[in-house]
Structures are given as structure tokens and as C-alpha cells.
Amino acid sequence: MWRELIEQHTSQARFASPVTEQALFQVEEALGHLLPDDLVKLLGETDGVIDANGYNLVFSAEQLLQGNLEMRTYPALKRLYMSFDQLLFISDAPGDGNLFAYALVPEGRPDIFVWDHRTDNRRCVAPSLEHFIESWLTGHIQL
């Protein structure tokens, strides 16, 4: 489903082999929470997606793990920004340092937010992962 959705909008996306259930379990265990169902399904089809310009449309499981752990534990970030413990970063904005994330609270919320690294603002940009992907690929994400 996810590959087909992406391929409807671009033929230039790069896909990876599906992530293993064991790798997903390790990510969830290390982060201390479950991953959203639609993200798990996407990673089950492709372990991350690179767009036509070489940017992460969706991080791989390893990028999810490493990036989120860094954002949550890096001392300089803790001094500069509100806590990132309630966010799950899944993608980066091309060239500007902003990141896209699920809000983990309340649990099960499907919205995708953009985190602005300049202001620490967190704003909803899409009501679901599917809408986020379509909006990114059609140029309708508002940063």
C-alpha cells in the first residue's frame, strides 16, 4: 500500500528492504514505547524512503532509533528546547533543520507535526502519515 501510494506521486523515490520484526521490537524497546501502526506497516514494506532529491521522506528504523535517542538525551538540546520525549521524529525537512514527528501524547494520535529548530514551535502539518507523504510529494507541506 505505501509503495503504491508513493509511486502514484513519484517514480524517483528509493525504497529499502522491509525492516524485520526483531529490528522494530528493538527500536520500540530502546525508545520505551510502541511505534504508530501506520509507521510499522510502512517500515514493513520498506525500511525508510528517500525522495527524488535525496532527502528522508521517512527515516529507516535505525535512523528513527538513533535520531530520537539523540534528540531526547543530548545535553545541549535539553538546555535549549522543551523535552522531545513526547515526539517521535520520522523525517527531516530538506535543508533547514526542521523535523517531522508524531506526537506520542495522547497515545494513538495519528497527526504529523513539524518541529521548528529556530523557535522550538511544534505545529500540526498533516492529519496522518498518508496525508503527510502525499503533501510532501505534491509540495503542499507548509513549514
Score class of each variant (00 low, 15 high):
Arg3Leu: 13
Glu4Phe: 05
Leu5Ile: 14
Leu5Ala: 06
Ile6Arg: 04
Thr10Leu: 04
Gln12Cys: 11
Arg14Thr: 05
Arg14Tyr: 00
Phe15Ala: 00
Ser17Arg: 06
Pro18Asn: 04
Pro18Glu: 03
Val19Asp: 03
Thr20Pro: 02
Leu24Gln: 06
Gln26Gly: 04
Glu28Phe: 00
Ala30Leu: 09
Leu31Val: 05
Leu31Pro: 01
Leu31Ser: 02
Gly32Gln: 09
His33Met: 06
His33Lys: 00
Leu34Trp: 01
Leu34Gln: 04
Asp38Gln: 06
Val40Pro: 01
Val40Tyr: 04
Lys41Ile: 10
Lys41Val: 14
Leu42Asp: 01
Leu43Lys: 11
Asp47Asn: 15
Ala52Trp: 07
Ala52Thr: 04
Asn53Glu: 13
Asn53Arg: 12
Gly54His: 07
Tyr55Thr: 01
Asn56Pro: 05
Asn56Tyr: 10
Leu57Gly: 02
Leu65Ile: 04
Gln66Leu: 15
Asn68Arg: 09
Asn68Ala: 06
Thr73Lys: 11
Arg79Trp: 08
Leu80Gly: 03
Leu80Ile: 04
Met82Lys: 12
Gln86Asn: 10
Leu88Trp: 05
Leu88Asp: 07
Asp92Cys: 11
Pro94Ser: 13
Gly95Asn: 11
Asp96Val: 13
Leu99Val: 14
Phe100Lys: 02
Ala103Gln: 13
Leu104Pro: 05
Val105Asp: 09
Pro106Ala: 10
Arg109Gln: 13
Val114His: 08
Val114Cys: 15
Val114Leu: 08
Val114Arg: 15
Asp116Ser: 03
His117Pro: 00
Arg118Leu: 14
Arg118Met: 12
Asn121Lys: 09
Arg122Lys: 09
Val125Tyr: 08
Val125Phe: 07
Pro127Phe: 03
Pro127Gln: 12
His131Tyr: 02
His131Glu: 14
Ile133Trp: 05
Ile133Pro: 04
Glu134Asn: 01
Ser135Ala: 15
Leu137Phe: 15
His140Gly: 10
Gln142Leu: 07
Gln142Cys: 02
